[in-house]
Nucleic acid binder design. Structure first.
Length: 286
DNA sequence: TACCAGGTCGCTG
DNA sequence: CAGCGACCTGGT
């Protein structure tokens, strides 16, 4: 187990922020995360967090995954008090962070997100993992009756490989609730398969935001908004600012004279996430 | 029943 | 190049 103090992070808020579709709440406030082929559970204890892994794995994988190098206090400070809407959004989603998720996984999940709703996206992702993923054993957290935290074995399904989806063909994707997006998923799976696919993915990771965005737009089923989501969540270009129906509505309501994108150049995606979180959770949380 | 959900495609003018 | 209807599907 790893015990570490982390500011500006709330796992429940991250889970409800619409950027990841495989975080699940376990007992006693524990959250489980499946990221690609890796699994971890985490829980808050006062000002600290407990993670179900060794220090070495935490430093190698999860520290980056939870973007612990990101200066969220610094981002928040940039928003002036005159912007009462954004100040309120940040107050509401103070613990939201931009996770550094797997690129291939983001391609699939955000292609699925188009003209769709979050519960159904989650369902489709779960079905894809159940059908094409591999069962593995990971480490979870349990609270013993004496009040101490201990690790237990947990089984989980990995996220499917591009090859496993590509080889299923379009017929293998029916019945998973993908709807008309099935052909887009097959297309991106074929694109990401094999050595050529690896090269393409590696090239995207090397590219800057503009270049990555342009390359993504060439893919079937990927438009401006999904490309921005992939850049933001899969490539950690935090300057990307995805505009969906919710954000569009926020912009017209609170920023009739235009959102000051220039002011937040290079990290506007962080603020977009506070906006999005506030929009879809403001009613649910008290 | 019609409309909406973290949009994009393909066609039209 | 901008505008616009169609689109799988499950939930109100």
């Amino acid at each position: 187990m790893v015990r570490i103090k982390i500011n500006d992070m709330d796992l429940g808020q991250i889970a409800k922020s619409g950027q990841c579709f495989r975080m699940k709440e376990q007992e006693h406030g524990v959250w489980s995360v499946v990221a690609g082929t890796k699994y971890i559970e985490a829980v808050r204890e006062e000002e600290e967090f407990l993670f179900s892994c060794e220090e070495e794995e935490f430093q190698r994988i999860w520290s980056h995954y939870f973007d612990l190098g990101g200066d969220y206090a610094g981002y928040k400070k940039q928003v002036p008090s005159e912007d009462s809407y954004l100040r309120e959004a940040i107050r509401c989603g103070w613990g939201v962070r931009i996770l550094c998720q797997d690129l291939w996984e983001m391609l699939v999940t955000f292609i699925l997100s188009q003209n769709n709703n979050i519960p159904r996206i989650k369902g489709s992702v779960t079905e894809l993992c159940n059908k094409f993923g591999v069962e593995r054993s990971g480490r979870g957290l349990v609270l013993f009756s004496d009040g101490t935290w201990n690790e237990v074995r947990k089984s989980y399904m990995t996220f499917p490989t591009p090859e496993s989806i590509a080889s299923s063909g379009i017929s293998g994707l029916s019945g998973l609730g993908l709807g008309y997006r099935d052909k887009y998923i097959l297309s991106i799976a074929e694109c990401c398969s094999g050595p050529e696919g690896n090269t393409w993915l590696a090239g995207l990771k090397e590219a800057d935001y503009e270049s990555a965005h342009a390359q993504l737009l060439k893919q079937l089923g990927i438009g401006k908004k999904v490309a921005d989501c992939v850049c933001l969540f899969g490539l950690h270009h935090v300057g990307a600012f995805p505009v969906d129906t919710h954000v569009k509505q926020i912009l017209t309501t609170y920023y009739p004279d235009g959102f000051p994108l220039k002011r937040y150049e290079g990290y506007a995606g962080i603020l977009q996430q506070y906006m999005f979180y506030h929009k879809i959770n403001r009613l649910a949380v008290e």
